[in-house]
Amino acid sequence: MRRWRTLALKSRHLLGLEGMSKEDIELILDTATSFKEILERPIPKVPTLRGKTIVNLFFEASTRTRISFELAEKRLSADTVNFSKATSSVQKGETLKDTARNIEAMKIDMVVMRHSAPGAPHFLARCLDVPILNAGDGAHEHPTQALLDMYTLREKYGTLEGLNVVIVGDISHSRVARSDIWGLKTMGARVTVCGPSTLIPVEVDAFGVNVNYNIDEAIQDADVIYALRIQMERQTSGLLPSSREYHHRFGITQERLRPLKKRVTIMHPGPINRGVELASDVADGEHSLILDQVLNGVAVRMAVLYLLSGEEGTVE
């Protein structure tokens, strides 16, 4: 007879990192360590979610996140169904609720959802009876991205406690920034946000972060620079004069890094606009963890899928 230490996340869903406890984050990161080992096996696949069906509901174009989730699901032997439908948030036609209810009627076990509207997965969680995993909701949260970022940093530094992280770029429209800030703060890191003042949201101190509009000052003491992707449409909407000026003011270049006392780790959620957020030699440099982030993304997503897949209401 074997006694298992069983653990569950406090929530049935993974909707965001705001309010997630340190214990839960640690459980996910620790579990991800075991899954990363699986990815290195000759057959990088385990039968754990055999017979489970996971639907990837992507209402917004996404290549890497969807591929990462799909790979994680397949490595766990789940059956996966992809539903991609790029929609504007107010497009007419079948409602989100109807779409979801239809898919649920096909007896699925979990939904991974990407949507352009903040709160869309929260809404879905109220409509459906299966665990919902938020793969990005508008500018709100992108919890698995932040978890893989934290995993990558923990792998490098051993702990996140006291780490000085500077997030650079469009904070206003970034779900990655929001989830990373929540997660990193919970894990004891110090976070500074830096970017053009038009792209820093009002009352950003509500997150408990420092704000600095001067990149050279902001990275003075940084252990990690996390560059966010700049969407080109910010120019046309009047928030940014030009990507040239952005690169000049906020782009991470070797010249900018050279005078720093500490060696700074470079991260980016991808895809990179080379020559805008990051100079190519920085993105590909030895202190860049960008490709580690991608690999770790699969392990972290496997861990989350695993932890959320325990069934409710059945006896152990």
Partner: peptide, 21 residues
């Protein structure tokens, strides 16, 4: 660690902690 290969997956409320292999 055989956790991920167990056959009682569909009967559990909580997931066992995955330990190192």
């Amino acid at each position: 660690d055989i956790t991920l290969y167990r056959d009682d997956f569909r009967k559990r409320l909580k997931q066992p902690l995955v330990k190192a292999t």
